[in-house]
Design a protein around this nucleic acid. Structure first.
Lengths: 143, 143
DNA sequence: CTCCATGGTCTAAAATTGAGACCACGTCTA
DNA sequence: TAGACGTGGTCTCAATTTTAGACCATGGAG
């Protein structure tokens, strides 16, 4: 019940309602939702950070590691592999001794930068709100 | 070497370069980066999905669970608690028997919808590219 | 009396992640 | 000539996180 009144709804919300209805219509299998499969990867804790680093300029494996000191080699290798598989970055091997490998954003990877910057900008702008809310919550008895 | 030429750089990338330089300037401690703390939560695998569900309308605990069948109660409870702590959703208890609890987006939560929709739109538009890249990668010997 | 639904918590098992050793190779230093 | 170092990783084992599902108190319906 309580159908949704779509008038007076902000644009983003309306869009989300539409999306959700479409998903639900096609017997929405959340674990099969393609958008979710993509969003999941972005939420990988390391993925966005690596993309931001590669947005500066192409990096070699160990340069990325230096830029993100607290990533383990294991996860860095995996993150880079996943990003390459998704076509977001390219991997170029130079046959020097020892061989060096350069990772760089593809056009697809570049195209992620716009929405990513939007999100970061939002996080920056809303940071005071969020930190305030956290402090208030922690000060209350629920903490 | 290869300092960055900032002319001819797309806007988003330039912005990211600036951000990164600011971060690095202040002896960038990635584990202390506030924006990262916020982005980490959004990448929580369940967080965005819950936000999308609550963007439709307020939901009760079990309604959210029905909307996202493959989330465990434990993680749903935790995700909702974290979102409440961050001031993104509000929790309203109605003293019915048994008591029911309603979760709804706050203004802060609503404000996330815009960047979130951008990201989802990007994912939708680029889905063919990404799936194509995945198929190509898996078909190659690296798989 | 029994079953259902409410909003969770708790425990044990499964999955993911992290720390760090290890590798082959060549080059630089002593 | 012997070590040590840097390259881009992989491998193993331990620590952390997530999941599945039992459980709880309450009250209403049958």
């Amino acid at each position: 019940m309580t159908g949704l009144r779509r008038d007076n709804l902000p644009t983003a919300q309306m869009r989300l309602v539409d999306l959700f209805e479409n998903w639900s219509a096609g017997e929405f299998d959340p674990s099969n939702c393609p958008v979710r499969g993509i969003l999941d990867r972005l939420g990988d804790k390391w993925t966005t950070l690596v993309v931001i680093v590669l947005a500066q300029r192409p990096h070699r494996f160990s340069a990325v590691q230096r830029a993100i000191p607290d990533i383990s080699k294991r996860m860095l290798a995996q993150t880079l592999r996943d990003l390459e598989r998704d076509g977001m970055i390219s991997r170029q091997v130079y046959p020097t001794k020892p061989p060096s490998v350069e990772y760089r954003l593809t056009e697809l990877g570049q195209s992620l930068l716009d929405p990513l910057v939007n999100l970061i900008t939002w996080a920056e702008q809303r940071r005071p709100n969020i930190e305030g809310a956290r402090a208030a919550y922690d000060a209350s008895d629920r903490a």
